[in-house]
Design a protein around this nucleic acid. Sequence first.
DNA 1: GTTAGCACTCATCTCTTGACAGTGCTATCA
DNA 2: TGATAGCACTGTCAAGAGATGAGTGCTAAC
Lengths: 333, 333
Amino acid sequence: MLTNRQKNVLKLIVEEFVRTAEPVGSRSLSKALGFSPATIRNDMADLEEAGYLEKTHSSSGRVPSEKGYHYYVDTLMKEGFDTDVDLTLIDDLFERKMSHEETIERAIDLLSQLTNYTSIALGSSGENARVRKIELVPLYGDTSIILVVTNLGHVESKNIQLPQGTDMEELKRIIQILNDILYDVPITKVAEKLRYDVDQERIKDILTYNQQIIDAFLEAFTRFTQSKFYLSGQSNILYQPEFKDPDRVRELMNFFEKNEILQLVEHGGGNGLTVRIGRENQITAMKDCSVVMVPYEVDAGERGTIAVVGPTRMEYRKVIPLLQYLAAHLSKL
Amino acid sequence: MLTNRQKNVLKLIVEEFVRTAEPVGSRSLSKALGFSPATIRNDMADLEEAGYLEKTHSSSGRVPSEKGYHYYVDTLMKEGFDTDVDLTLIDDLFERKMSHEETIERAIDLLSQLTNYTSIALGSSGENARVRKIELVPLYGDTSIILVVTNLGHVESKNIQLPQGTDMEELKRIIQILNDILYDVPITKVAEKLRYDVDQERIKDILTYNQQIIDAFLEAFTRFTQSKFYLSGQSNILYQPEFKDPDRVRELMNFFEKNEILQLVEHGGGNGLTVRIGRENQITAMKDCSVVMVPYEVDAGERGTIAVVGPTRMEYRKVIPLLQYLAAHLSKL
DNA sequence: GTTAGCACTCATCTCTTGACAGTGCTATCA
DNA sequence: TGATAGCACTGTCAAGAGATGAGTGCTAAC
């Protein structure tokens, strides 16, 4: 159990280290706490023994450990969030009526600007979306495009080559039937519906129809369930002193470039705020980074997660309330 | 005018420097050329005087100048492209029938893999596209989505809020009229067509129709003309020794992140291969980079540019034929 | 025209040194 | 008994001094 003073010491060390990126010595804390450096040192030694602090070398100041950050986020910080954050910019953003996608894109742009870290929005997984309209539009020659629109306003399309001598009238009829059958069917149930629909008689035509076309439709459907994501402020993280080392930068940028980021956010429990510090991310490239993520859910069933990625030495006090405020707004869309 | 030996010296310096990223001394060339170091040094001095070479400091080996690279690309390299390049991977890519967009995306992924530089595809500007289909699909409540499809298989959509009590039947009629009038009209001519169409009588309804909806359509149309682009292998460039300096990395990554890259590629003359070396790019962040770009044009009128961005010390011998081969393939789509 | 030789110039690496920030420990104080 | 002062110790960092080596320019000779 930590004494009150020890908690204060830990809190100040975290905040000071977040500010300066330099190990924190006992002298600088002594002024703020009103105890002599020697006293602080004793507390520090206890905190280190308990695993909340670390030293970079035997005679350096202290640096918070992952456990230390966690204690800070879970307990110490709770009392005082950073109130200097300018929330009006977020309010402004939501004043303007834009499509959800655009709003989200702008929101994370703003988020990365305000925080100076990297922001990610894991787009609404299409799980909850329902089919609104299926269409086929001839383009040129024997090329056509198929469209699928969901109730959430997402559109997927795919170009296809119609086999020579396709009967366009019949095709139109098929599309019509598909629309009838699949209207308001959840995206995830489409394949099932086609396979086990009671009215097999009616869709027999479809199932025996040109395989390529059916496949194209199915691909369009499955694309909805592939989650999209937006990324903003990748380069922000390069301004952090811990990323002076080019190797680390490479590792991280490589990671951002690939779709592996999905892993990072996807496994986020999903219920409320999640903070993952350093190696908790399970990803080597991210071992010196923290991720703060919050899920949001719009009435219509659209769901997603917004997250901020920064160094473990992140301004949690500022990032967390900002993210929560933003997620709350998104959920009101 | 350069002597033959001087040309050889320049060629070898470029190729050696490209390979090693170290200034090239006279000794190493003497072996390859069969002349003594002193002789080479004389040639080097001449080449430096003529502006083809530079020194990093007074007693260092020589490094090609921008002019030197240019001479190399324009004249010296022509004779021998790198033939070790594995073109079969590109062939394979085009074997698989995918949509144009997907093909292009994969193509530049491949390009960045093969070259180890960053690749960009400036998507077909919609200039040449024509309207194929306009549609409005109700989603939920008074929210609908409008869709515009072009002959090139591109789709743009925009969510709109219908004003209370909108007459859906009338709206459908309007959409029908729009389809009639605008079918096969080039995207760029849509606004004009609506304004000056001979058949003003018929579209009077439309023009006086709810402004918000008209605006939404017009926005969807203009979005086609905004060029899209794909970027791949951003982090590749970080492996180049010239980007050890974190400041440079930041500058470059920042540049990649913003849409400023468009500037880079857009101004590319457009007819055939363009190579821009160093400051020719007019962009400070790119002053140590070269851009090689080739336009492509598909039958249907789809047009675009693919480009490779790397350090000025780029493997032109390898990149240029690769890009050309790829562009030729794309044009055959 | 080509080459050998020599003096010279920088960049780079290593080693040393001193300043400095911070710790741990112990003895002392209230 | 908790807080503090003092002191020895440890590691980092920056600056300076040499030593090393790659490469040049120039001149004289072939």
